[in-house]
Amino acid sequence: MSELWVFGYGSLMWQPGFDFAERVPAAVVGAHRALCIYSFHHRGTIERPGLVLGLDEGGACQGVAYRVEPAQRNATLAYLREREQITAVYVEATKPASLLDRSGREIEAVCYMADRKHPQYAGRLSLDRQAELVLAAAGLSGTNIDYVLNTVRHLEEAGVHDTTLAALAARIMRGEVS
């Protein structure tokens, strides 16, 4: 059994929930981080959906790669599938990633890509619509506001500035909806 690499671009960056041997800044090319998934479970409900991040097609995304020891591979994948695949809105995929630790290492990492054909795929929503949804939503894992603010804070701490998420965070902190 081989080691496993997992790419985190949202809450996995600040709350992985599994044991890992190494945590390294990383980037994936060909996909970008976006609030493009309606959340009916963790950060919203069917009546008041929230928004959570998906890894969507195109662009590039900086995040974190976690190396998992071979003995923990199956347990980690089972945990991630239970956490990320509640409604099957993500497609589990293996993508090439570059580790940004000056080692020059290139790895293959498990990523959870947004399924554009799934009914929960929100696509590209205006900042106004995103703020409206985030301000009103809460689910089993807490408020949608906390999810967005925690994500932005952890991205900034990792040296990653996501302009769109930062603008949304500023707007929701002011309670602005146009």
Rank of each mutant, 00 (worst) to 15 (best):
S2A: 14
S2I: 12
F7W: 05
G10T: 04
S11Y: 05
L12T: 08
W14Y: 11
Q15L: 09
G17N: 01
D19H: 12
F20A: 11
A21S: 13
V24I: 15
V24F: 00
V24M: 00
V29D: 13
A31S: 10
A34S: 14
L35I: 00
L35G: 02
C36W: 06
C36A: 15
C36I: 05
I37M: 15
Y38W: 14
S39Q: 09
F40A: 10
F40Q: 13
F40L: 11
H41Q: 09
H42F: 06
H42C: 05
H42L: 00
R43F: 02
G44H: 11
I46K: 14
E47K: 14
R48K: 15
P49F: 08
L51M: 04
L51F: 05
V52L: 08
V52N: 07
L53H: 01
L53R: 12
G54A: 08
D56F: 02
D56C: 13
D56Q: 06
G58Y: 11
Q62E: 14
V64L: 15
A65R: 03
R67G: 11
R67P: 09
V68F: 06
E69I: 00
A71E: 15
A71R: 15
Q72W: 08
R73K: 11
A75K: 04
T76P: 03
L77H: 03
R81L: 00
R81D: 15
Q85T: 00
I86C: 01
I86W: 02
T87Q: 04
V89C: 13
Y90V: 02
Y90D: 02
V91Q: 14
V91T: 10
E92Y: 03
P96W: 11
A97V: 12
S98C: 06
S98Y: 11
L99K: 00
R102H: 14
S103P: 00
S103I: 07
R105A: 15
I107D: 07
I107Q: 04
I107A: 03
A109K: 05
A109G: 01
Y112K: 04
M113Q: 12
D115S: 14
R116I: 12
P119I: 12
R124V: 14
L125R: 15
S126Y: 07
L127C: 10
A131W: 07
E132V: 05
A137G: 06
A137N: 10
A138Y: 12
G139C: 05
S141P: 03
G142M: 03
G142E: 02
N144L: 05
N144M: 00
I145K: 14
D146T: 13
D146R: 15
N150M: 01
L155R: 03
L155C: 01
A158Q: 06
V160Y: 04
D162M: 04
T163P: 01
A166P: 03
L168E: 05
L168H: 02
A169C: 01
A170H: 06
V177C: 10
